[in-house]
Amino acid sequence: MLSAGLFNYWIVVVLMMTGFYIVISRSNLVKKIVGLNIFQTSVFILYITAGKIAGGTAPILDDRFDVYSNPLPHVLILTAIVVGVATTSLGLALVVRIREAYGTIEEEEIELQDASAQRREDEEAEAPKGDGAPAGGRGRDS
């Protein structure tokens, strides 16, 4: 009896950890966003599970029913779903822009490119010093 009543929560935990695993282990940005969506849906199921009452019915008033499930989690999740898709789109738009700027959507390659660009910038910053101070005070200050 106890285990049957907690089964929903366990599936929620499994889904939540699946999404979490995708987010922390995969470097593909689109896959990460899909992972976040899985995580998000697991939270939705957690809330809706909390709102269920045994023998209850959907919270639409009718003379034939006395017991209704808790409408409050439904309201919270209803809005969260639509907000979720809007924010997911925003994340995907960022992914598209990253692809346009870097030519890749793999996090590791982006970090490599950033590191090499950073190294090159450092070298360029050091180069004038080796050649001797240029005219003006800027070279000495840096």
Binding site: V82, V85, A93
Partner: peptide, 16 residues
């Protein structure tokens, strides 16, 4: 608002 935002998002991705 929801309909217009969804259509705007779609246009954004499709136009790109």
């Amino acid at each position: 608002t929801v309909a217009a935002v969804m259509i705007t998002i779609f246009y954004g991705f499709a136009g790109r």
